[in-house]
C-alpha cells in the first residue's frame, strides 16, 4: 500500500487525489504505526521546513521513516519541502533536516529573481528527458554529491529540481499539480 504522510501543513489530499486518479490505492499515514504496511512512502510538502519537521516530530515519524527508508530501502518520494527535508540543513528557519542526503537548502537570491519561484518551469532529467512542471519554492537544495542530482532547472542559475539516491527520490516541483506530465512521473514512482 502506498502511504502518503498527512501532517498539519502538508497537502496530502492533493497527492492522494492524483495517485487515486491513476487507479492506484493509497492511504494517509498519520502516525508511525500507519507506515508499517507501506510499500512506498510519499512525503508531500507545502509550508516551511520548520513546520514540516515539527509536525513529523510531533507525530513521532522519524525513527520509523529511518527504519523503512534507510534500512529496508522502501521507495520514498519527498515533494517540494519533502525534498528539502532529505538534506542536512535548511536556511529556512535555521532548521536541521533528515540528513539522508549530503547538502543544504538555500534561499533564492531575491536580488536576481522574484521569490518565491511560482509557475511552470522546464525540468531537464539527466537521462535526457525533459518537461514542464509546476514549482512553488523560495528555497532549493544544493546536493553535495553530484551523483544525487536527477534533474536540473534554471531559475537565476541552475539548481537541482529532482534528486535521487537508490530508493530515495525528491522532486522540488509539485508533481501532483503538474498536469499529465506530473501524473506520468508519479505513476513511474508508484510502480518502482
Amino acid at each position: 500500500m502506498i502511504k502518503i504522510i498527512d501532517y498539519k501543513a502538508g497537502n496530502a489530499p492533493s497527492v492522494k487525489h492524483a495517485v487515486t486518479h491513476l487507479g492506484i490505492d493509497a492511504q494517509f499515514a498519520r502516525s508511525a504505526v500507519d507506515l508499517l504496511d507501506a510499500t512506498h512512502i510519499i512525503l508531500p510538502g507545502v509550508g516551511s521546513a520548520k513546520a514540516t519537521m515539527d509536525s513529523l516530530e510531533e507525530m513521532q515519524m522519524l525513527p520509523m521513516l529511518e527504519k523503512l527508508v534507510l534500512q529496508e530501502k522502501k521507495p520514498f518520494l519527498g515533494i517540494c519541502v519533502g525534498l528539502q527535508m532529505l538534506f542536512e540543513y535548511s536556511e529556512e528557519g535555521d532548521q536541521k533536516c533528515f540528513g539522508w542526503l549530503k547538502g543544504n537548502v538555500r534561499r533564492f537570491d531575491r536580488d536576481s529573481v522574484r521569490v518565491p519561484q511560482m509557475g511552470w518551469n522546464e525540468v531537464n532529467f539527466i537521462d535526457g528527458d525533459s518537461g514542464f512542471f509546476y514549482f512553488v519554492n523560495s528555497y532549493y537544495a544544493t546536493p553535495f554529491d553530484p551523483d544525487d542530482i536527477w534533474a536540473t532547472t534554471d531559475y537565476g542559475g541552475t539548481f537541482a529540481s529532482a534528486v535521487r539516491r537508490g530508493n530515495i527520490h525528491g522532486m522540488q516541483f509539485h508533481v501532483e499539480k503538474s498536469g499529465e506530465a506530473g501524473l506520468a512521473l508519479l505513476r513511474r514512482f508508484c510502480s518502482c
Binding site: 501543513a9 507545502v46 509550508g47 516551511s48 513546520a51 518565491p116 511560482m118 512553488v136 519554492n137 523560495s138
Partner: peptide, 14 residues
C-alpha cells in the same frame, strides 16, 4: 493580520 497569520501557518506561497 490574516495575511500574516496565514503565511505563518501555511507558508507565504499559499
Amino acid at each position: 493580520e490574516i495575511i500574516k497569520d496565514g503565511a505563518k501557518a501555511f507558508g507565504s506561497q499559499c
